[in-house]
Design a protein around this nucleic acid. Structure first.
Lengths: 184, 184
DNA sequence: CTAAGCTTTCAATAATTTCTGAAAATACAG
DNA sequence: CTGTATTTTCAGAAATTATTGAAAGCTTAG
């Protein structure tokens, strides 16, 4: 397992970005390499290609699996476990978003809900609760919308995204509908 | 400056989540406290309330300003600088998203564009480039869509988000339109 | 059952990030 | 200007996070 300079460039870049996506450098590198490899890779391949210890690879694989990003492959007569990326690039994006919502947004919503149940004890808390309510409502709105989008068939979602500025027009139309709808 | 237990709970929680949003614990705490405070806070208020050094506060404020999240207030006859949150909660969300796209997605797109300009040198790179092209296209689609959404008047965006499952129906309608449109 | 081939675990260590506090720089009232 | 209040900077310390590697734990072919 050796990486070509091109592949190496992307793998290292993705490693740097990794922390932004919720995992650390080596986990990012591992995933990038797996995604770019046509054939399944085993732990040793990763360890050698990325120059990281076998133990680190093991932990990284566990992490990637907790994100449901890997597909395990077994080769008959070979005891090693091999891995490829689970699903398409689109699937990967959806899984990362789902998982991040679960890990980042839900806990915050939970804290906010708890806090908002308690009556404000003074002037200061009245204001703070107003703000927390706003944050709560915004997060809940976004979270619900994300749900909606993520469960949509990918093809439909792509259509929606490609609508571009057309979306404004569509909205003017639906605006009129929802004003007469059950909510509002 | 003392925090009530309620406010403290949220401030600390937001500190923990902070790293997910692109800044560190104390910067997250500082921002949460500023958002929840009705009155402008100065560096000393933050330093005392959060038990962090004056120097740390100074760096944190600089960081928050680079995200365009603070509004500076000056009190006549007082040399200190005071800060409040810039804009509404909604504005804050939009700024964080804008900034994150700039800091996280753009660099990746740039690396991908560069890499995709070079002809694949072998079998392995042919496959890798296919995948990188897919990633590039997805990122660009999302990035362009985010642009669209973020420049939309907030009221319109809220309407769109509240559409919920109605969006599927709207899409079936627009599907027919775009099939006849200039693209596709 | 046994032993070889892999994987996992985890204490120790390394690397990175964050934080402090004192000194330097800046801003401003008088 | 001057003197003081305030902010910024940054080298070193502390805290956190990531990584290693050796030992223990599985798994499976024979």
């Amino acid at each position: 397992m050796t990486m070509t300079p091109q592949i190496e460039a992307f793998v290292y870049h993705f490693g740097e970005m990794g922390s932004r996506w919720g995992f650390n450098r080596t986990v990012g590198q591992m995933y990038a390499l797996i995604v770019l490899s046509e054939h399944p890779l085993c732990a040793n391949d990763l360890s050698e290609a990325l120059n990281i210890s076998r133990g680190n690879v093991s932990m990284g694989l566990k992490e990637l699996q907790s994100w449901r990003l890997l597909q395990e492959k077994r080769v008959p007569g070979d005891r090693k476990e091999y891995f490829t990326a689970a699903g398409s690039i689109w699937d990967m994006a959806i899984r990362v978003l789902e998982e991040r919502r679960r890990r980042e947004v839900e806990p915050t919503l939970s804290v906010l809900r708890d806090t908002l149940l308690v009556a404000p004890a003074n002037e200061q808390e009245v204001y703070a609760q107003e703000k927390m309510q706003e944050i709560h409502d915004l997060l809940e709105l976004c979270s619900g919308w994300a749900d909606e989008l993520l469960t949509m068939p990918p093809q439909k979602l792509k259509t929606l995204m490609r609508l571009g500025s057309g979306m404004g027009k569509v909205l003017e139309f639906t605006d009129k509908l929802t004003l007469r709808g059950p909510e509002n």
